[in-house]
Write a protein that binds this DNA or RNA. Structure first.
Lengths: 196, 196
DNA sequence: GCATTAATTGACACGGTGTAAAGTTGACAC
DNA sequence: GTGTCAACTTTACACCGTGTCAATTAATGC
């Protein structure tokens, strides 16, 4: 499709992504249009609403940054403990990429149910990753005996929230490496049986 | 001041609080006015902006629910460990009260710098509480040796965020008791030296 | 030459915040 | 009584950002 066409759609997605990664506070449709070099109305020729544009941008980032590859790495781990560490590294390292988007989508939760649902959906995918990591721990008999899989997944999912990353990295000024190592330690202290 | 006047200001604050505690999604000035039984414009006779009304509501809740008393309880604890537990219980039990407000203020972060600053200010107060609890642990030589006070405070503050409470209680369906006990366990596993 | 497609311009409706002005009501003073 | 002050009302409007619509232009393919 779109042989020689400049593929405006892709340009829009890339510009949106760029604008989102510089923490520029608010991002209006007109800001995006200006950055792309088209009229605000032309945006609506490609995306029906602002929410859909943002959601499409998340999918675009996913495909460019290849989340699946990151996930695959953690699935390849042999022990449950390695898998947990690998998952934390994979997802934790992905958060900075989608942080701007996370903020934008969260800010329109109230007022756009569709945007909220889309974001929740993505977070549910993360939760599935947490669930798999917890299951791997349980299979290795490494899960604390007083935690069932559900509760353990809830805890890991909470620990790995974008919001916690924002607090530690953006608000507290931690480096990404500090974030990952502390969260890993915290997750292990939280989930692993104490007999090591 | 306002001798026999029906103290509309207080009624506004109470109604706002009520509307906010029922998780009714969006809350417009007209909704509040209707609930109070006055015109939307009368709201502006008492509060210059929506942001200021919400901020005044937080202060109002603080004074009604007497946060200081809760804090005092944790300050009275003898050991650092007790102080930590008491602080978690005090603040964690307060979160449900201010949860609605938290959502409302967060949703206007982007677009109203004043509202954002006001909320950050309140969260910094919580951080001071975390700092004090961490200092008490350090005084008792109970703090993990590989954590300095700053990092430990960052971690505790993050753990005790309203967002984490929302995830576990609202999204995952935990009871308040489950939340408090798990967070307490997590905080101890995170901060306490391993020699018990 | 003609149709299609992408983009343009300009106008407008809607919802929510905030402002402004003129009118109502009731309590108090004296 | 008359006057005045304050709280509140009604009506109207400006501003902003989203989303819609219609008419137009420019480039491409056949």
């Amino acid at each position: 499709m779109s042989r020689d066409s400049p593929d405006t759609r892709a340009r829009i997605l890339n510009c949106t992504w760029n604008l989102l990664k510089s923490p520029d506070k608010k991002l209006r449709m007109s800001d995006i249009a200006k950055a792309v070099g088209i009229s605000r109305q032309a945006l609506y020729l490609h995306f029906p609403t602002r929410a859909e544009l943002l959601i499409a941008t998340t999918r675009h980032i996913d495909s460019v940054k290849d989340v699946d590859a990151r996930l695959a790495e953690s699935r390849a781990a042999t022990s449950g403990r390695d898998r947990l560490a690998s998952f934390i590294h994979g997802w934790g390292g992905y958060i900075p990429e989608i942080h701007g988007l996370s903020v934008a989508l969260r800010n329109m939760r109230d007022g756009d149910a569709e945007a909220a649902a889309a974001w929740d959906d993505r977070m549910r995918a993360v939760r599935h990753g947490c669930d798999a990591a917890v299951a791997a721990l349980a299979a290795d008999k490494m899960l604390r005996p007083d935690l069932n899989n559900e509760v353990a997944t809830d805890l890991l999912w909470t620990l790995l929230s974008v919001e916690n990353w924002e607090r530690l990295v953006c608000d507290c000024g931690w480096s990404q490496a500090e974030y990952e190592s502390q969260i890993k330690r915290l997750a292990e202290a939280t989930l692993l049986a104490t007999d090591q």
